[in-house]
């Protein structure tokens, strides 16, 4: 990555999406020597309310810590899209789960990936939604190296869940490559 990159992860409280933002930021800081700033938005509700986290990555110290031109957005809820799909660049990469997000502005580079279905069927626990999503992001973008993201995820994963997180990440990554027509 060079220069300045902005990513937004939007979902509803309880989907664990704040963790995905932390993992991206820590991957940039710890494994690529970059600067990163991570700002979650809190709403009054904790579970079920629309929530997001913004991550800015830069190769120099970050001055303004909020997003103004977003390069990548992951969204896992329609009402989060309706509320948070702002400040996206025209060529923003948008990753959505088509079972949860039905209407988006098609002017963006929209990728539809069944993150929830993959997590439910192959991981059997919804806590791995973030890991699958991060894997998918690693496949669709080159913000940081996939290996940096994987390492940051495993470092953050609770003890004993490393293998499962690794598997979830790989599932997301492979699904994204398949979507792009590349082989995993």
């Amino acid at each position: 990555m060079s220069g300045h990159y902005e990513a937004r992860f939007a979902a509803v409280g309880g989907q664990g999406i704040l963790l995905a933002g932390d993992v991206l930021a820590e991957a940039a800081i710890n494994y690529e020597g970059l600067y990163a700033a991570d700002s979650p938005t809190y709403t009054a509700q904790v579970r079920g309310g629309p929530t997001k986290v913004d991550v800015i990555i830069d190769n120099k110290r970050i001055e303004f810590p909020r997003t103004t031109a977003i390069d990548f957005m992951l969204c896992l809820a329609q009402r989060s899209w309706d509320r948070f799909a702002k400040d996206l660049k025209d060529d923003c990469i948008v990753l959505i789960d088509p079972s949860l997000v039905h209407e988006v502005d098609e002017k963006y580079r929209v990728y539809r990936l069944p993150v929830i279905e993959i997590t439910k069927k192959k991981m059997r626990k919804m806590v791995f939604t973030s890991a699958v999503s991060l894997g998918a992001m690693a496949g669709l973008t080159n913000i940081v190296k996939p290996e940096s993201l994987r390492k940051a995820l495993l470092k953050k994963a609770p003890r004993g869940t490393e293998d499962a997180n690794k598997k979830a990440f790989q599932l997301g990554y492979d699904a994204a490559l398949e979507l792009l027509g590349k082989s995993g």
């Binding site: 932390d22 930021a25 800081i29 600067y35 990163a36 700033a37 991570d38 700002s39 979650p40 809190y42 970050i62 810590p65 909020r66």
Partner: peptide, 9 residues
């Protein structure tokens, strides 16, 4: 609030 919840290096 911005600084309280902002994580950075």
């Amino acid at each position: 609030e911005v600084l309280g919840h902002l994580s950075e290096r």
